[in-house]
Simulated assay, not measured.
Amino acid sequence: APPAAGRRGTPAPHAARPGPYAAAGNTVWVQGTDGVLTVSGAGIAPAVLRPDGHGGWRSEDPRWRPVHALADGPVRILLDDADPYRAVDDEARQHGLFAFGTLTAGQRERWRATWRAALPLLTLTGQRPLVDAGLLSCVIPMTRPPGAARRAEGAAHSSGTRREAFGAVLASAPSGPATLAATLVHELHHAKLSAVSDLTPLHTAGSPRRYWAPWRPDARPFDGLLQGAYAHLALADYWQRVALAPVDAELRDLAWAEHARCREQVGAILPTLSGSRQLTSAGRVLLAELVALHTRMKGTPPPARYLARAAAYVETARLTWRRQHTR
Rank of each mutant, 00 (worst) to 15 (best):
Ala311Gly: 15
Gly126Cys: 02
Leu78Pro: 07
Thr183Trp: 12
Gln31Tyr: 05
Arg50Gly: 04
Leu193Ala: 00
Val291Gln: 14
Pro145Lys: 03
Ser274Val: 15
Gly224Ser: 11
Ser207Pro: 01
Ala71Pro: 11
Asp218Val: 06
Arg322Pro: 02
Pro11Glu: 07
Asp52Lys: 02
Gly275Trp: 06
Ala23Tyr: 06
Leu79Ser: 10
Ala288Gln: 08
Ser158Thr: 14
Arg252Lys: 14
Arg305Thr: 15
Thr326Asp: 04
Ser194Gln: 08
Trp57Cys: 06
Leu270Asn: 12
Ala260Asp: 08
Ala205Val: 01
Leu37Tyr: 02
His190Met: 05
Val266Asn: 00
Glu60Phe: 10
Ala168Ser: 11
Pro84Asn: 09
Leu79Met: 08
Leu119Val: 15
Leu319Ala: 14
Val67Cys: 14
Ala99Phe: 13
Gly9Lys: 06
Arg8His: 07
Gly19Met: 06
Ala257Asn: 12
Ala148Leu: 02
His54Met: 04
Arg58Leu: 09
Leu319Phe: 07
Ala282Met: 00
Ala249Ser: 15
Ala304Gln: 13
Leu235Val: 12
Leu290Gly: 05
Ala231Met: 01
Arg216Cys: 00
His232Lys: 13
Val28Asn: 06
Pro3Phe: 01
Val139Lys: 11
Ala243Asn: 03
Ala99Cys: 11
Gly283Asp: 01
Glu264Cys: 15
Thr10Trp: 07
Leu180Gly: 09
Pro3Asn: 02
Leu286Gly: 01
Leu319Thr: 15
Asp61Arg: 01
Thr38Val: 15
Leu251Ala: 02
Asp89Gln: 01
His189Glu: 00
Ala105Ser: 08
Tyr85Phe: 11
Pro11Arg: 10
Thr104Ser: 15
Ser158Phe: 12
Arg309Met: 13
Thr300Trp: 14
Ala245Val: 02
Pro174Lys: 07
Pro20Gly: 05
Leu184Asn: 06
Asp253Gly: 11
Arg296Tyr: 00
His189Ala: 00
Ala304Asp: 14
Pro302Gln: 13
Asp61Thr: 02
Arg277Gln: 11
Ser281Gln: 08
Arg110Ala: 15
Gly167Phe: 11
Gly19Arg: 08
Ser194His: 10
Val169Cys: 05
Val196Met: 04
Gly56Glu: 09
Ala182Leu: 08
Thr143Tyr: 14
Arg210Ile: 04
Ala243Gln: 04
Ala152Asn: 12
Leu37Gln: 04
Ala45Leu: 03
Leu188Glu: 01
Glu289Leu: 09
Gly206Asn: 11
Val39Phe: 14
Leu37Arg: 03
Glu258Met: 14
Ala99Gln: 13
Arg220Pro: 06
Arg263Tyr: 01
Arg322His: 13
Pro246Val: 09
Gln324Asp: 09
Ser137Val: 11
Gly53Gln: 05
Pro246Glu: 12
Arg63Leu: 03
Ala45Arg: 01
Pro62Glu: 04
Val314Glu: 09
